[in-house]
Design a protein around this nucleic acid. Structure first.
Length: 470
RNA sequence: CGGGCUGUGGCGCAGCUUGGUUAGCGCGUCGGUCUGGGGGACCGAAGGUCCCGGGUUCAAAUCCCGGCAGCCCGACCA
C-alpha cells in the first residue's frame, strides 16, 4: 500500500509533482481570476512562519515596519523612466471608482518604490534623519504572462524594504547586510536551503537599480529559483522624488537608496528544494507542526497519552499537534503528515502504552525508533535538531553535485540541462549571455570564485553561475 | 503574447472518431457494520449548468464558429 504512490513521481513529471503536492498537502488552490491563488491554512502557516523569522531579522537590522497604500497615482510610476519601462507591461490599472471615470488612473502597486519615496521626500530634511530604514509587508500585483502558484502569481505577498542613506558606500553596505544577515541567514539556517549570492548582470537587473544582488537556490529538478533580491538604487529615485537633505556642512545632498524583498515565492522554493516523492519536507525550524502526535487507535488510554505527550512537547518549546482522528485509518493519517512534510511523527498505540513507550518516525529517511514515554520529549527535541542539519547538508551535497565548471557557452548549455554551470564572466560576457538566453539559459548571478559577494559587478575575475530558472 | 496539449460530480479520467433512451469508472465525500501499527473491507447513499456563448440538426458531451480557463515549452519576472 505504502508504495502505491500518492503523487506523480518527480522523475516522471516534475511540474505535475509540484501541482500534486499543492493539492494533496492542502497548500493552495487557483483563484478564479487568472494567476491568482488561494493560500490554504497549511500553506499560509508556512508563510506566517517565514514572515515571523524574516521580520525578526529585519528588525534586528534596524528597519521599522510601516504601511503604504495599495493604490498609486499612475503619474508616480512614470517619474523614473527605467522603472516605468520595466513595470508598465504588467500593471493593473484602475480607471473607474465610485461608478465614475477617474481623473487620473491609479495603479495597483507592482512594488512601492515610487509611493514610498514620495514620502521619504517629505520625511528626510536633515542628515540627522538618515539612515531611514523602512520595511513593509504587503501584497503586490503584477499581471504575469505565465502564472504558477507561489512561484509567479498575479498577486503575491512579500516584504519590501526601502532605505535612504547619506553615502553610496553606506547604502551598498546596508543592501549587502540585508542580503547576508536577513535573507541568507534565514534561508540557510531556517529553510535549510543553500543559496548562491552574487550580482545580477545588467540584463537581469531590477528596473531602476544600479546594482541588484540576489540569492539563487537550486530546485530538485536542477532549475534555479531567485529566492530574494537586494538592490542598490543609487540616486535615481532620490533625483526624481527630490529626496534631499542638509548635510553637516550645510550643503544640500541627495540620498543614496536601497530596496530589497522576499516573497511568498519562497513557499514554492521550499516545496521544490526539499520535496520528494512522498511529499513536502519541512525543516524543523520552519515547520508550523514539528511533531504530529498520532493516536493509532482510541483504546487503552491512547488518546489521553497523546495529549499528555503533546503538552510535554509544547513545554520544551516544540510545536506539536495531536492527531486523534481515530475514525480515519492509521495509514491514511500517516500519509497525510508525510505529505505535509512534518519532520517527526510520534505514534502512540495500545502496544506502545503497554510497553510505556512511543514510536518516533522521521520524515527524512523514514526511520522509526521506540523511546520510553518519559524521555520522549527530549528525544524528539534532539531528533529535530539533527533533522535540520541533515536537511541542509543533503541539500548542499545534492546542489554541489549538479554544479559543473564550464569553459564555453556550449558547455554551459550542456550543464544547464541538469543543473548549474560556472564560467568566468570575462569569458562569457554580455554576448555569451545573450547567446545562452536563446536556449532559456540565464546568468543567475556573478560572484567571486570562492562564492562570496563581490564589492561590485565590475570586479575582475568574477564567475558567472548559469542555469535555467523559474 | 507565440507554440503544443487539455476543459465531463471535490480530484483523476472514459465516452466524442461514426450525434440517438437514464452520461459512466476509479479515488474522495456522507451513513452504517466490521476493523485498526502505512491511503483496510463490505453494504448503502449523496453529488453533474458535460467550461461559456452562438450555430447546424427532429436530436449535441459528441459536429461547426467564437470566447474563456488550465497545464507544458518559450519571451517577462519575486
Amino acid at each position: 500500500m505504502a508504495d502505491k504512490g500518492v503523487l506523480t513521481p518527480q522523475s516522471e513529471d516534475f511540474p505535475r509533482w509540484y501541482q500534486d503536492v499543492l493539492n494533496k498537502a492542502e497548500l493552495a488552490d487557483n483563484g478564479p481570476v487568472r494567476g491568482t491563488m488561494v493560500i490554504r491554512p497549511y500553506g499560509f502557516a508556512l508563510w506566517e512562519r517565514m514572515q515571523a523569522e524574516v521580520d525578526q531579522r529585519i528588525k534586528a537590522a534596524g528597519a521599522e515596519n510601516a504601511y503604504f497604500p495599495l493604490f498609486i497615482p499612475e503619474s508616480y510610476l512614470s517619474r523614473e523612466s527605467d522603472h516605468v519601462d520595466g513595470f508598465s507591461p504588467e500593471l493593473a490599472v484602475v480607471t473607474q471608482g465610485g461608478g465614475k471615470e477617474l481623473a487620473e488612473p491609479v495603479v495597483v502597486r507592482p512594488t512601492s518604490e515610487t509611493i514610498i519615496n514620495a514620502y521619504f521626500s517629505k520625511w528626510v530634511q536633515s542628515h540627522r534623519d538618515l539612515p531611514l530604514l523602512i520595511n513593509q509587508w504587503a501584497n503586490v500585483v503584477r499581471w504575469e504572462m505565465r502564472p504558477r502558484i507561489f512561484l509567479r502569481t498575479t498577486e503575491f505577498l512579500w516584504q519590501e524594504g526601502h532605505t535612504a542613506h547619506a553615502t553610496r558606500q553606506e547604502a551598498r553596505d546596508y543592501a549587502a547586510r540585508i542580503l547576508h544577515e536577513v535573507y541568507r541567514d534565514f534561508m540557510e539556517s531556517v529553510l535549510a536551503i543553500p543559496v548562491l549570492v552574487g550580482y545580477k548582470t545588467e540584463a537581469e537587473r531590477f528596473p531602476g537599480a544600479i546594482n541588484s544582488m540576489c540569492l539563487e537556490a537550486m530546485m530538485r529538478d536542477g532549475k534555479a529559483l531567485q529566492m530574494g533580491t537586494s538592490h542598490e538604487l543609487g540616486q535615481s529615485f532620490a533625483t526624481m522624488f527630490d529626496i534631499s537633505y542638509l548635510d553637516a556642512d550645510g550643503n544640500q545632498s541627495l540620498v543614496w537608496q536601497t530596496s530589497w524583498g522576499v516573497s511568498s515565492r519562497m513557499v514554492g522554493g521550499l516545496i521544490m528544494a526539499h520535496g520528494d516523492d512522498r511529499g513536502l519536507l519541512v525543516p524543523p525550524r520552519l515547520a508550523p507542526v514539528q511533531a504530529a502526535v498520532v493516536a493509532v487507535r482510541d483504546a487503552e488510554g491512547v488518546v489521553d497519552a497523546c495529549h499528555r505527550l503533546a503538552a510535554e512537547l509544547a513545554a520544551v518549546g516544540i510545536r506539536a499537534r495531536v492527531d486523534d482522528r481515530t475514525g480515519t485509518g492509521f495509514g491514511r493519517r500517516a500519509t497525510d503528515w508525510e505529505l505535509k512534510g512534518v519532520p517527526v511523527r510520534v505514534e502512540i498505540g495500545p502496544r506502545d502504552i503497554e510497553r510505556g513507550q512511543a514510536t518516533l518516525a522521521t520524515r527524512i529517511g523514514g526511520e522509526k525508533e521506540s523511546v520510553g514515554l518519559s524521555g520522549a520529549s527530549e528525544r524528539v527535541a534532539s531528533l529535530l535538531e539533527g533533522i535540520q542539519e541533515r536537511m541542509y547538508d543533503s541539500a548542499v551535497a545534492w546542489r554541489d553535485s549538479r554544479i559543473a565548471e564550464a569553459a564555453t557557452p556550449a558547455e554551459v548549455r550542456e550543464a544547464a540541462a541538469t543543473g548549474f554551470a560556472r564560467i568566468p564572466w570575462a569569458r562569457l560576457g554580455p554576448e555569451g549571455e545573450a547567446e545562452l538566453a536563446e536556449d532559456a539559459v540565464t546568468v543567475r548571478c556573478l560572484q567571486r570564485p570562492d562564492g562570496s559577494l563581490p564589492e561590485s559587478g565590475d570586479e575582475p575575475d568574477l564567475v558567472a553561475v548559469c542555469g535555467r530558472s523559474y
